[in-house]
Write a protein that binds this DNA or RNA. Sequence first.
DNA 1: CACAGTGACTTGACGATGTCAAGATGGCTG
DNA 2: CAGCCATCTTGACATCGTCAAGTCACTGTG
Lengths: 205, 205
Amino acid sequence: MNNQTDKKPHHHGDLAAALIQSGIEILTESGLDQLTLRRCAARAGVSHAAPAHHFDGLAGLRAAIAQEGFDRFRRHLLHSRAQGPQDPEGRIFSLCRGYLDFAEENQALFALIFSCGALPQNPDNLKAGETTAYGVLRETCAPFVPNGTDPRIVETQVWSLIHGFSHLFLAGIFGPGNGRSDHHALFAPVMALLNQIGTAAPDPN
Amino acid sequence: MNNQTDKKPHHHGDLAAALIQSGIEILTESGLDQLTLRRCAARAGVSHAAPAHHFDGLAGLRAAIAQEGFDRFRRHLLHSRAQGPQDPEGRIFSLCRGYLDFAEENQALFALIFSCGALPQNPDNLKAGETTAYGVLRETCAPFVPNGTDPRIVETQVWSLIHGFSHLFLAGIFGPGNGRSDHHALFAPVMALLNQIGTAAPDPN
DNA sequence: CACAGTGACTTGACGATGTCAAGATGGCTG
DNA sequence: CAGCCATCTTGACATCGTCAAGTCACTGTG
């Protein structure tokens, strides 16, 4: 209903941000199904109906948390990409490594961000946060885009590969093998598919 | 009232299957957040507490629906793979096409199947259904596995790419472009990355 | 400084949901 | 036929999202 950039509106002092922070903590500690309006309110020290004045119901709070989570995700990717060798191959590998790490360390938040249908209304805000996070990917993929081809092809190849791997990793779906370390061992070989990137983009279909 | 098999164990006649079927219908018609124990019970024509005698709460029903959904997914993949050219490239392309189609036509069920943490308990049952669905992928990928390499590498490359594309497609995440047809146009070029599969394996060809 | 006014939050209530305990029902076995 | 027991129903309770009305504190204006 109102903007979120006020410093100390009246009573609590940026309750909206406090509720988002509480929500992220609940997500981290207890999982997605424990994310509740009343629980966020209690954690922030306000009554159970207070969040209604800042978000459009539970869906609105989830959308706001997803937006903040997407921004944290973006910063995590930037930090991760800066680690390791700074040639195009090294940067894209570090980016994907950071993608997987973030998904693993923030499972519920990661799931919320990418949960289909979690963003029925206001796709505008999420779209903005998404675009900036997508921008990190776009920069990193740019050196691999062949001249004259749609950059979204390479971007979607990379994004799909690392997102699919991360999501399947979290879902526990993978070959009959078991054990996290076993699956981690698959990361580098699977990412090796990216070595062929750019050479795989053929003429326009 | 109920369709399906008429075994009639005691009263209702395979209420468990009827509840799963009701749940899938609710999923298809109304989305994931409308999947409720009481709603499934009402649709199956039983009282609100009846499901408790067949599933371990809502989580148990969701797991059972996921298991059934995974089997339908497997059959859909088999059917889709049989369409089109039957050379290794044609089969894997048709498989991926069917993957995306299933995700698009059964969004909520697809999300439930792969929802992280939706399977906290009994991973055994889902593991079985998963293995058979994974088996379809494994067969289709087999011609592309270089000698002496772990087949899971190629399998995970393909699975991650198509799953990531499908999931991002449903989540509405993709470049600044918009429109479903626009995203569908990305499918074939992105799948072209699979043309390099097998040659990307670490060992020399 | 007094006094409304307005926004931030609280309180209380309602329907819906998951879950549990106890009772009713009906087929199966002895 | 009688008893058993899985199956299902009924009723209750705590929690949840949401709404309406009320309370509180800060702010601007005289």
